[in-house]
Amino acid sequence: MSTMTLAKAITSGLDKVLESNDKALLMGEDIGKLGGVYRVTDGLQDKYGAHRVIDSPLGEAGIVGSAVGMALRGFCPLVEIQFDGFVFPAYSQITTQLAKMHARSEGRLTVPVVIRIPYGGGIGSIEHHSESPEALFAHTAGLRIITPSNANDAYWMIQQAAACQDPVIYFEPKRRYWLKGEVDTETPALDAFKAQVVRSGDDATIVAYGPLVPVALAAAEAAREEGRSIEVIDLRSLSPIDFDTITESVQKTGRLIVTHEAPTFGGLGGEIAARISERAFLSLEAPVLRVGGFHMPYPISKVESQYLPDIDKLLEALDRSFAY
């Protein structure tokens, strides 16, 4: 057991990956000497050399595309996209190449590439630095998408992503980089592709992931003071989604709120709402409600607090759910 920030937990996880797999390598913009703009790869180039922690030229399609080529040769590249809003130059490589290589080759080729992307808002930044584009990737078959919400998961899930034979996008909740937590470096965390009940309750369920898990937990605590017992699920994996864990919870509580920073329209909340209404229709006491971002480009930071889901918005949604 040791206490680490979420960012340092990823660093330690990456260190483990580089140490245990000599085919693993890191590549991205400014990740070597600088250690990345968030210092997530800090110290790793010194330890493993510039040939394993590579400062790449500045081009996202080149980063992901060359990672595909390295994977075809048997390497396991873990690449960093500097910010959520800058992944799009690589969107074609990710969706038309990386995601499909296994299928197109009739299962012969595997491309075990990991793409790390810091995402989400709440950091008071300028445009393109606060987005949550996960649904744009979850819609593409062939990719796996995970996101940790705490240091222990961050440490283990990056290693699980690296060990996975499928391409994995690892979304890092950047506003939680400095969140400290206990990391158990001995006992592996739950399977990266499973959801976890992080607070149990009987009256309603909140599904959250990444940066909003602490918010959901705080809302549950506030609701307790009003006499409501709220179960909170940390989704962890956005593709696949562990619908069994959500279904089981909703069968118990009868009410479900899904929250994410990404816009509600076309977001993963809609998919979860639809699946849960199919799987647990008779258990539902109220429609599944969603608390997400508005249908607008991510707003200017001075007003982002009005855009982002927060404790009050979750409590308001709970009120609406209980009013049915």
Binding site: V64, G65, S66, G69, L72, R73, P77
Partner: peptide, 10 residues
């Protein structure tokens, strides 16, 4: 073409 570059780097 980026795949080729990456394969070559490998």
């Amino acid at each position: 073409l980026p795949h080729a570059a990456g394969y070559g780097m490998a």
